[in-house]
Each structure stands twice: as structure tokens, then as C-alpha cells.
Nucleic acid binder design. Structure first.
Lengths: 186, 186
DNA sequence: AGTCCAAGCTAGTGCCTATAGCTTTTCAGC
DNA sequence: GCTGAAAAGCTATAGGCACTAGCTTGGACT
């Protein structure tokens, strides 16, 4: 019987796909193994267990999200950049719900690779807010508000917490507008 | 051997306590049964399964949260009421993290009791925003923004998503202030 | 005291993670 | 081309979980 050609990266990718299909909370090693036509214990040759798989999916998703955000914001500034990034954030969460949920989990203390991915996203958000006149603590508070807005909105949207789906784009746009308006222009 | 005196309500309460202690995602029927000194299958005499337990905890938590929000907002109006309610929301989420997570899950379609609990919270939020000059769609967008802000903030806070040492209370206060300022006064 | 229903029990299935130890593929070095 | 070792995937197994089936027994009511 030929080998499946597994490795840690392709397993993480399969886990990410699975998360998008059946939900981040529902992924199992057994289902990932089935996807490769391989027995579940075989995965342990490449990955230490379910916890490590989840962590790998989180890193993968965090990198993707980071790339989407920077791509959206590049070449724009101020409110324009803010809206572009916020839209990219929500679009990613809708298109890749399992990956998005994965991207949100906090890195384990000491997991520097994972921490760097999370930090990278923060840097991008910070850069986008660089178009406003924020200094020191003001910037920290603004970043927190923006993250809370975006994360809260997409999470509630995914959870089915909002009725009237036709108005959601408008709600999101106005919400970001409101934040933008409450920040001092440079 | 004396009977444990189980019923659906006390099981839900134990599930809620357990969720606060070990996490909403981690609750199991086995752990709830152990809490009563009873075998796991015995719970099935009162509750249809894990899914129903979770639903019951969600209803219980939603009622508690609703009560906290209304208590906080009563006798206040405008920005004062908004801040009081938002603070109560975050306080509840911090004090009862498992219950809070439970309260957020969407009711199953047709579960009218659960839907009413969720709707009640919405009515309270709506009432608090009654102090602003919002009509029709404007109000819907404002409610969504407020919920996204509150939920996003407390979720990220619980997940350890805010690493920096700057004062979280201050971040939250400013965030709610920002929203309040972006809404038209009556 | 006797009846009877519901409460809690044991036994067992199936799915999951994870570990131990086996077999087989692959390929580097001869 | 051969060979031997490392790596890949395997079977077997233990232990935890949800859930079902069917038994026993507590205790309220007559």
C-alpha cells in the first residue's frame, strides 16, 4: 500500500478545511485521518495530538487572516483603510468560519511562533489606525474598540444572533463609520 | 441508599456552576452526575441529553443576565443608563464566564421559551437606547453595534486577547462613550 | 401491608483520544 | 542492485464520553 505522504503542514490544512465545513469545535483527529484514508493513530507520527492540531490550524488561519487584512489596507489610508480592513476581516470570517474561530484562540504562553502570528495581526490593525491622531494609551483603547467591534459583530453574525440578514452590511458599515467618526483625525 | 432528589432545574443549575468553573465547552453529563453523587445515566430520567442540558443552562443564564441588565438600567436614562447596562453586562460575563458563554448561543428554531429569553434581553437593550433619537433602521443598527461592542469586548477579554496592561475598565468606558457620542440625542 | 410508578442502577454500544509495539515502505550508502 | 535503518502507517488496547435498554428499589398512597 502506497504511503499517504502526510506531514504536519498538510494535516493542519486538512484540519482547517474540516473546521470550515463542520465547525471549529467539532474537528476530530479521526475525521482528519479519514480524509487522508489513513488510520487515526497514524497522525501521531506527525502531530502530538488534537491540541497541537488545533494550535496548528490557529497559526495557519492567523497567517491567512493577517495577509487578507494587509492586502485590503495596502495603498489606502484613514477611514478608507479602516473600512477596507474591517470588510476584509468580516469577509474572511464569513468565508472561512472554522479558520476564523481558530484564529481567535489565544496562543499558549511561550509559543513564540503562535504569539508572533497574533502579534502580526495587531500590528496591522495598529498601522491602519495610524491614519488617526492617536497617541499612547489613546491608540491602545482605539485598537481594543476596533477589535471588539469586528470580533463581536462577526461572532454574533455567525452564531445567528442577528435577525434581518439583508441589513447586515449596512449595520457593519455604519458601525465602523461610527468608530471612525469618534477618533480624532490626524 | 437515599435518593438524590434530582430534577431538571437543579441539574441545569449544577451545569451552570460547572460551566463557570471549568468552561462552557468543557461541561459533561458525567461531571454533573458526579456532582450529585449519581451515575451518569441517571440524569436521563430528567434531561434528554447533553444538548438539552446546554439549552437549559443557556435559558437560565439568559434570564439571569436579563435581570442584571434591567436592574442596572432601571431609574436611569440616556448615556447614564447605557453605561450602567454595559457595565452590568461585562460584570456578569466576568463573574459568570460559563453562564455568559451559554447565554449567547442562539435558540433552536421553535424553542419559544428560549427565544423569549433571548428576545427579552434585546427588549432591554432597545429600551436603554430609547433615550436616544433613533427611528426604525437607525435603532436596529445601533442595537447591533452595541451588542457587537459588548460581546466582542468581553469575549476577547475572557479569551486573554487583550495582553497589554493598560486599564481595561478605561478601554470599555471609552468605547461605550464613543458609541454614545455617535448616536443622536433625543 | 400492599401496590405501583418513577428514580436511580448495571450492562453494554459506539465514538473519541491516546499509547505501545508491530510491519512495511523508502532511500542513503555501499 | 543490495541492504539496513529510520520513518510511515498499521493493529491492538485502554480509558473517557454520550446514550440506550432493561432491572431494582424507594417511597407515596391506598
Amino acid at each position: 500500500m502506497p504511503r499517504a505522504g502526510l506531514n504536519r503542514a498538510v494535516i493542519a490544512a486538512a484540519g482547517a478545511d474540516l473546521a470550515d465545513e463542520i465547525g471549529w469545535q467539532e474537528i476530530t483527529l479521526a475525521a482528519v485521518a479519514a480524509r487522508f484514508g489513513v488510520r487515526q493513530p497514524s497522525l501521531y507520527k506527525h502531530v502530538a495530538g488534537l491540541a497541537e492540531l488545533r494550535r496548528d490550524v490557529s497559526v495557519l488561519a492567523g497567517r491567512e487572516l493577517h495577509a487578507e487584512l494587509t492586502n485590503a489596507a495596502v495603498g489606502r489610508s484613514g477611514s478608507d483603510a479602516l473600512h477596507a480592513m474591517a470588510d476584509a476581516y468580516r469577509t474572511y470570517a464569513k468565508k472561512r468560519p472554522g479558520r476564523y474561530a481558530a484564529s481567535v484562540i489565544a496562543p499558549a504562553p511561550g509559543d513564540t511562533e503562535h504569539e508572533q502570528v497574533a502579534g502580526g495581526i495587531l500590528v496591522t490593525v495598529e498601522a491602519v489606525l495610524g491614519g488617526y491622531d492617536l497617541a499612547g494609551d489613546d491608540e491602545i483603547h482605539a485598537i481594543r474598540a476596533l477589535r471588539a467591534l469586528m470580533h463581536g459583530f462577526v461572532t454574533l453574525e455567525q452564531a445567528g444572533g442577528f435577525a434581518l440578514p439583508q441589513d447586515l452590511d449596512e449595520s457593519y458599515r455604519r458601525m465602523i463609520d461610527g468608530l471612525s467618526g469618534s477618533l480624532p483625525r490626524r
